[in-house]
């Protein structure tokens, strides 16, 4: 098990290899479908973004509402491919890590290699467990989007697995072949 702290600098990204199990401590930002569209709109209009993309981590999640006194509700990853069309633009601005679940397209992987970034998988559906690693949560933009609002999270030992590393090595493809039984 590898432990890393944010900010996610290039040196840290380079040490991570596909298949590594990692615990993240530090800051990350939540963004999913509608939030990505807002960010892209702001980039196109040359507006200042709600957070600095450089060395940041985005977590694709739309949490359930927090009960009174709780930091956040259940908060597992959503499927990442829906963000693919928006991702290269964010990688160009210095985004270094993404947390989600499921496959990414060729363009995203190429841009990850070019910009030295990493794609982590969190366990989809382990939403109550993942929520217990989130120590603070604050909405910093797009509040009208409800579950899709942009939140700044502080997490401790947040468990993820490196799915695609900065060399473009993809654990989904490699491991599946190992276990495949052809009749």
């Amino acid at each position: 098990m590898i432990k890393i702290e944010t900010p996610l600098t290039i040196d840290k990204v380079k040490c991570l290899k596909a298949g590594d199990e990692v615990l993240i401590t530090g800051t990350m930002y939540t963004l999913r479908d509608a939030g990505h569209m807002r960010v892209i709109e702001q980039i196109n209009k040359d507006e200042k973004l709600p957070f600095d993309m450089k060395n940041s981590i985005i977590y694709y999640v739309g949490p359930s509402p927090a009960k009174l006194g709780a930091v956040i509700g259940s908060a597992g990853p959503t499927t990442s491919y829906r963000m693919d069309e928006f991702t290269p633009a964010l990688l160009e601005l210095g985004l270094k890590g993404m947390i989600g679940k499921g496959a990414r397209n060729k363009e995203v992987i190429q841009s990850m290699v070019k910009n030295t970034a990493v794609y982590f998988g969190a366990v989809g559906g382990a939403a109550a467990l993942l929520a217990s690693c989130i120590k603070s949560s604050e909405i910093i933009a797009y509040e009208d989007l409800g579950p899709e609002a942009l939140r700044k999270l502080y997490v401790e030992d947040f468990p993820v697995i490196v799915v695609i590393d900065s060399l473009g090595k993809n654990i989904y493809e490699i491991e599946k072949e190992k276990y495949k039984i052809v009749e």
């Binding site: 679940k101 499921g102 496959a103 998988g121 366990v123 989809g124 697995i161 799915v163 654990i171 989904y172 490699i174 491991e175 599946k176 072949e177 190992k178 276990y179 495949k180 039984i181 052809v182 009749e183």
Partner: peptide, 14 residues
């Protein structure tokens, strides 16, 4: 047959 596909838990193989 589906379990022979090799996809595994979370697609990480298995």
């Amino acid at each position: 047959k589906a379990n022979n596909l090799g996809i595994g838990p979370q697609g990480m193989g298995g």
